[in-house]
């Protein structure tokens, strides 16, 4: 493993499998009455969140605490960032406080990469702009593996706002490393220009892809980033790209439905689909803690690599 987790592309197949296998063992701990391990005692994890987040921040916090690390939460609101402090100065402040790992979410793509050059500890990307969200991809892969077994040769369809989605990019990179075949489905306006160079297929027609899919991952339509006319109306989007009851009925019998949350019920996914036993949406949240524990353990649990990538 490298010292930082910035992009899903940094993970080799062996790294990814090591994280998933470690998470498998750690998942057993959530069934115990004492859900705590002493492994990261005396280590400090800083959650540096410049963007709003509920589940990712709480998930990282729970993961670090279950490994007995000290957690410092930092959110841009109510901090010196609103007085105009730069990312670098914030980073140096945290560094001076002795952070062994910094978990960062930032609105600008590439912020974690910059941060990694400034701090001595490990940097974990918890979502940067429209770039990547590697731990989400890991927990998605972990969830798929628990439901379906090996991902080799499995067909995964990712539907929705690919253009603004860091989850989609990380998932495509990780899943192709793990041997799954990914198809992206979206209106042409919601696909990034560079999508041709991604290791995946692209389609504009959801109905033709659904019957062959083992996994259907619905993405949220990110209203806060919809600053241009990407589609005519929400109703039309929902009719062509939403997972409603009829489309759900045409899925393979053992296919699973995923959503990274938060959902817009009735828009990209129908409420009854989201609540069906084949949907993994609640499972994904629980798996998020386990997967992040595995990542923190593998980055911080061993010897200090002394600032050099191994």
């Amino acid at each position: 493993m490298k010292r930082h987790l910035i992009s899903a592309a940094d993970l080799s197949r062996d790294d990814a499998l090591l994280i998933l296998d470690t998470a498998d063992e750690l998942a057993r701990i959530s069934d115990r009455s004492i859900k705590k391990l002493p492994t990261l005692r005396g280590r400090t994890v800083v959650n540096l969140f410049f963007e709003d987040s509920t589940r990712t921040r709480i998930s990282f916090e729970a993961a670090a605490k279950r490994l007995s690390a000290d957690v410092i939460n930092f959110s841009a609101k109510g901090s010196s960032v609103s007085k105009g402090e730069s990312l670098k100065d914030t980073a140096l402040t945290l560094e001076a406080m002795g952070a062994d790992a910094v978990v960062i979410r930032h609105g600008a793509s590439g912020a974690p990469h910059r941060l990694a050059g400034w701090v001595r500890g490990s940097v974990v990307n918890a979502g940067d702009g429209t770039h990547e969200h590697p731990t989400q991809a890991l927990l998605d892969a972990f969830t798929m593996r628990r439901r379906l077994g090996s991902l080799e040769g499995r067909r995964v369809t990712v539907v929705g706002d690919i253009l603004h989605s860091r989850v989609a990019r990380s998932n495509v990179l990780l899943l192709s490393t793990l041997g799954a075949e990914v198809t992206l489905v979206a209106p042409p306006t919601l696909l990034p220009v560079s999508v041709g160079s991604w290791p995946c297929e692209v389609s504009y027609d959801l109905d033709s892809v659904l019957p062959k899919s083992d996994v259907v991952m619905m993405l949220r339509v990110q209203r806060e980033r919809m600053n241009a006319a990407f589609f005519p109306t929400e109703r039309e989007y929902s009719r062509r790209y939403g997972l409603d009851r009829e489309r759900f009925a045409r899925l393979k019998e053992d296919a699973v439905v995923m959503h990274p949350g938060p959902m817009n019920r009735g828009m990209e996914i129908a409420a009854e689909v989201a609540d069906s036993p084949r949907s993994t949406i609640v499972e994904q949240v629980a798996n998020g803690v386990t997967t992040r524990m595995a990542v923190l353990y593998l980055l911080l649990g061993g010897a200090d690599l002394g600032g050099e990538d191994q």
Binding site: T22, E25, G302
Partner: peptide, 22 residues
Amino acid sequence: LDITMYRDDLRTKPARPLGRTE
């Protein structure tokens, strides 16, 4: 009973893979 997470020498080597506790 896997004891990896409870070892006192974890910091001397890169993180080790976990065994199974059952």
